[in-house]
């Protein structure tokens, strides 16, 4: 059973970050597992599971020169579990509406009360500076029926927020 760690790197976006970081990890003897790397605002964010290599302290030290050169902040901690722990979503919730503070808290609060387990949430702010539009897509697992989740979220429609709940149909072929 490999010993996995969760490595997080965040810094101002520029081309070449992924290549430099993953090369350094490889040279340090690390193996990569599941990863999420994406630009958020003007930052590039990387969260990746790494195993192997030498001790954790050594890994941080090995990455420090590159991190300083590229202006990345590093965070490393042990990751419980490992690979092959996928949970499958059965519901997808899509929300969009005029951007306002508290929208995500409202939506996810209602979902949490339904016992909805968020497996993935991504959001974006579209529109323009005067009229920002918040767009969010959530995938997760809920034992309650789609009708129950839909009814619980319906109150948000009164605020002019568009909410759509759909089932995620998994096809195995």
């Amino acid at each position: 059973m490999p010993d996995w760690s969760m490595l997080t790197l965040v810094g101002a976006d520029r081309p070449g970050i992924v290549a430099r970081v993953t090369r350094a990890l490889y040279l340090h003897g690390c193996n990569l597992g599941e990863a999420s790397m994406i630009r958020l605002g003007g930052c590039f964010t990387m969260m990746l599971m790494v195993s192997g290599g030498e001790r954790r302290a050594d890994l941080t030290a090995a990455l420090r020169p590159i991190a300083e050169e590229l202006g990345l902040r590093i965070h490393l901690e042990p990751a419980p579990g490992g690979l092959h722990q996928h949970l499958l979503p059965n519901l997808q919730v899509r929300v969009f509406g005029a951007d306002r503070a508290g929208l995500v808290a409202d939506v996810t609060g209602i979902l949490a009360a339904q016992g909805f387990h968020v497996l993935e949430l991504e959001s974006d702010v579209a529109g323009d500076a005067e009229r920002p539009l918040y767009i969010m897509s959530i995938q997760g697992f809920c034992e309650r029926s789609i009708e129950s989740v839909r009814a619980a979220l319906a109150m948000l429609s009164d605020d002019g927020v568009s909410v759509d709940v759909a089932s995620v149909d998994l096809l195995i072929g």
Partner: peptide, 13 residues
């Protein structure tokens, strides 16, 4: 869009 998996690609959708 729909989510798919496959007997030939275990543990991935």
């Amino acid at each position: 869009i729909g989510r798919e998996g496959c007997l030939s690609v275990p543990d991935y959708t």
